[in-house]
Design a protein around this nucleic acid. Structure first.
Length: 539
DNA sequence: CTTATTCGGTTTTGG
DNA sequence: TCCAAAACCGAA
């Protein structure tokens, strides 16, 4: 109550016409009043300007969750100056409201005296600083996202508590076994988690059993500490819900913590569970962290993800014919698998997941300017062979190289780079004397244009689909998480068909009634084509 | 001397 | 001397 009161009083101060009528009765019954005010604000869609608006909305939902539906909150209008400041420069994080004011006000600012007579437009100062390009990004993407994240944070994901405890014990057992095994093989006791000690062992990599044991130890240890025990510490009464950070990255992507749901391992790990009681009995079990999350009774998890989004964007931005041709192929062909089969000279049916993953890493590495040493490390080949590969890549995709050169050149001139939706990243080091700093800035520039644009499109998809669910009178599907190019929903079993149908419909038509893209982008046709093509692949 | 904080290094994710 | 996140651990 106190927290809500504090938030509300700050809020009320920023809503001039509310102030006079409400200040007199504030002491009578806080909660009733709060509720009434909130109902009114949400109902009338009063624009709410609030630092950390997401936290405010989440608090509202947590306290009045029974009376205010998540769809109502999703329909509210909120503005957050912190996000505005982040759009102006994503690199400098604004730690507090006071610091934000200090940064964007000429005069020093003392907290507690928010006098509207002396600073009638104080709330809008930062907003005014956002010039036309960023303003639209702000309104069409970032502001709707505040509500989406607030709603996401108030939804609880059920985890299988018993399974969690069981796997924790199994993993703990396996770790002990591996530790003993390692000590035995090494002939001395040491810490398997110590990196400095491991570097010593690195030299002995070719001497048989140790590396294998250590690698497995690390894998199992990571699994236990982060995905199993880590998850348990995040749990509240059998549920978890991540905290989302909208301003935590420089590229425009989202990040999550407690737990970091974006970093939970996809791939299962296989461990042998030894049962000493019965003698030699052995049992191989697989543990995949993502199956520890369970949907509610009568609900199903549905996920949709883009395919090759960054590569598509790169193809579009560079207009590289060879790359564009790759995407004309039938839908079900996997680009990286194809590349892997070409690279390794094996039939595409025999390409394993690891091969595909490696091909992916190689392509992105080369595109974003990896050196021959790095690539050689990645592939396990000599630097000479690696440089030859880079050369042939550049030869085959000439326009990609042109694109990177052009991007760096523009960055040198302007001091910043821009994504497809106008998101900016200033890179002051682009003209630095220091070679290391300068080349780093160059790679960051190229990477930002592509990764930032991908983030833009992923956010567009998120807003579009979420909004279509909110508008629907029947659908109750909840957005659970965003893993960069993937959206995870929890859908009522009886609505799976409806949801999927509406979803496909929305995919194909959304670009037609979307915001005035033509004003945002110099090359609208190109963008529309990209947007359509990506929507098509988003299934 | 003990405790808290920060900083690499390594792992996972995503492209 | 590909990019950008978070978690964990050990050392400073």
């Amino acid at each position: 109550e106190l927290k809500l009161h504090l938030i509300l009083s700050v809020l009320i101060k920023s809503l001039n016409r509310f102030t006079k009528s409400i200040s007199n009765i504030l002491c009578v019954n806080e909660l009733l009043l709060c509720r009434q005010v909130l109902f009114q604000m949400l109902h009338r869609k009063v624009p709410i300007v609030c630092f950390n608006a997401k936290d405010f909305l989440r608090t509202v939902l947590q306290i009045f969750g029974n009376e205010i539906s998540w769809k109502q909150v999703a329909d509210s209008v909120v503005l957050d100056p912190r996000i505005a400041a982040w759009l102006i420069n994503p690199s400098d994080t604004v730690p507090s409201f006071e610091r934000l004011i200090q940064k964007y006000f000429e005069k020093p600012f003392s907290m507690g005296i928010v006098n509207r007579d002396t600073n009638p437009h104080s709330d809008n100062i930062v907003c005014f600083k956002i010039k036309i390009g960023l303003w639209k990004l702000f309104c069409t993407l970032e502001l709707p996202l505040i509500k989406i994240l607030a709603v996401m944070e108030t939804h609880k994901i059920h985890v299988n508590k018993q399974e969690l405890k069981k796997t924790s014990e199994i993993l703990g057992l396996r770790l002990k076994e591996l530790e003993q095994e390692a000590h035995q093989v090494a002939g001395e006791r040491f810490l398997l988690t110590s990196s400095s000690q491991l570097r010593e062992l690195n030299k002995l990599q070719d001497l048989h059993p140790l590396p294998k044991i250590i690698l497995e130890y690390r894998q199992v240890h990571k699994m236990k500490s982060t995905y199993v025990d880590g998850l348990r510490t995040c749990m509240r009464k059998g549920f978890i819900s991540s905290t989302w950070n909208q301003t935590g990255t420089v590229t425009g992507r989202l990040s999550a913590k407690h737990p970091n749901i974006q970093g939970i391992s996809k791939h299962p790990v296989r461990i042998t569970k030894k049962q000493y009681i019965k003698g030699k009995e052995e049992e191989i079990i697989t543990i995949s962290p993502r199956t520890l999350f369970v949907s509610k009774q009568g609900y199903t998890f549905l996920a949709a993800d883009f395919s090759h989004i960054e590569l598509r964007i790169l193809a579009d931005l560079s207009s590289e014919p060879e790359l564009l041709k790759l995407f004309q192929e039938p839908e079900d062909t996997d680009i990286f698998s194809t590349l892997a089969s070409q690279w390794k000279g094996i039939p595409s049916e025999q390409v394993k997941h690891a091969d595909r993953e490696q091909a992916k890493r190689i392509v992105y590495s080369v595109v974003y300017g990896a050196g021959k040493e790095r690539l050689a490390d990645c592939l396990g080949i000599t630097p000479l062979e690696a440089s030859q590969f880079i050369e042939s890549f550049m030869q085959k995709y000439k326009k990609v190289h042109e694109f990177t050169k052009k991007t760096i050149e523009q960055c040198r001139n302007k001091g910043y780079v821009v994504s497809i939706m106008g998101r900016k990243r200033p890179l002051p080091n682009i003209n630095a004397q220091d070679y290391k700093l300068r080349t780093q800035a160059e790679r960051q520039a190229v990477n930002f244009v592509v990764q930032g644009s991908a983030a833009d499109l992923c956010k567009m998809a998120m807003v579009e689909i979420f909004t279509s669910v909110v508008i629907s009178p029947t659908l109750t599907a909840r957005l659970i998480a965003q893993i960069h190019d993937e959206l995870l929903f929890e859908v009522e079993d009886s609505q799976i068909q409806e949801f999927s149908g509406k979803y496909n419909f929305s995919c194909k038509s959304s670009c037609l009634h979307f915001y005035p893209l033509s004003e945002l982008l110099p090359d609208f046709i190109s963008f529309q084509r990209l947007w359509l093509s990506i929507w098509y692949k988003f299934s």
